[in-house]
Simulated assay, not measured.
Amino acid sequence: MITAEGFGLKGPRGWVFRDVTFSAPTGSLIAVEGASGSGRTCLLLALTGRMRAGEGHAEVAGHRLPRQLAAVRRVAALGLVDGVSELDPALTVGEHLDERVLLQRRFGDSLRELMRPRAVRETAGRRRVTEALDAAGLDPATLPKAERTAARDLERLEALRLGTALALLGRPEVLAVDDADHKLGPAEREQAWAMLRGIAAGGTTVLAVCTEAPEGAVVVRTQAPVAAAGTDTDTETGGSAGTTSEEGAADAHAEAGSA
């Protein structure tokens, strides 16, 4: 379950987003809808524990933000987010999957899991990859060079599916995806939303940034704060004079890695 009340984040040059309030049960598809520069990605990062909000509070899987950032990071995984969790264009699909399995085994699994025989761990890793690929709707055999296809050669929807599969390898309670409908045609957009609906139906709550929310989603709208001309005080919508939301978002986004 994810809830937020009066949730807001202010960067060095103004409010990035402010007064976000909503509630969504476990297994929801939550669409963070808004124009570019309206703080959508920063809200996504704040709700997954990668940024520290400065106003209001939120609760993710029973963990309260902004106090319990580390606990939220443990249960919330990021799909593709530019500048934060991107695909390496030089690595192949298979290399991405192998690398993520190794990282999950080393840093994500319990000590008991690490003590199991190597053959057992490798079998479990292969099963986990198969489950993640199935949920993301990605069949490497259909790619131009199968698992040897480089990430730079993937179409946008294929890259979105791969990024989603990599996030699902950790079996998170919350999956966050940025720009879910970016550069997709109508048919591809529907396929992307069908994938995310299926993941949500399986019990994983999905947070997806988009330009236009799909039917049936819990919609959370962001809006670029409007500055009151000639004043230094915040306006009703949370903007500061002389400051754009895009500038504030850029400043706050740069701090995501240190959250």
Rank of each mutant, 00 (worst) to 15 (best):
F17R: 03
T211R: 13
G34K: 12
L45P: 00
A213H: 04
V32N: 04
C42V: 10
P89Y: 13
L168D: 12
D19L: 07
A180K: 04
V218G: 01
S240R: 15
T244F: 07
L45V: 05
G79K: 05
A249S: 15
A58F: 12
D179T: 01
R118Q: 14
A136C: 03
G170L: 08
T48E: 11
D82N: 14
A71L: 09
A259D: 10
G198A: 08
S85W: 11
D134K: 14
A90R: 15
G39A: 09
G185C: 03
L157P: 00
A31H: 02
R152S: 10
A180N: 05
V60T: 01
L87A: 07
L160A: 06
F7N: 06
S240H: 15
A176W: 14
L102Y: 13
M1G: 09
A192S: 13
T21A: 08
W193A: 02
A159K: 04
G83D: 14
I30Y: 07
A77N: 13
L166K: 05
E55V: 01
L47F: 11
D98W: 07
A227Q: 02
R64W: 08
A201V: 03
E55Y: 02
G83T: 13
V101A: 09
E155A: 13
H63Q: 11
R118G: 04
E33A: 09
E86P: 00
E247V: 08
A141H: 11
G125M: 02
P214I: 05
A141R: 15
L143E: 07
D153N: 07
E122M: 03
G49R: 05
S110V: 10
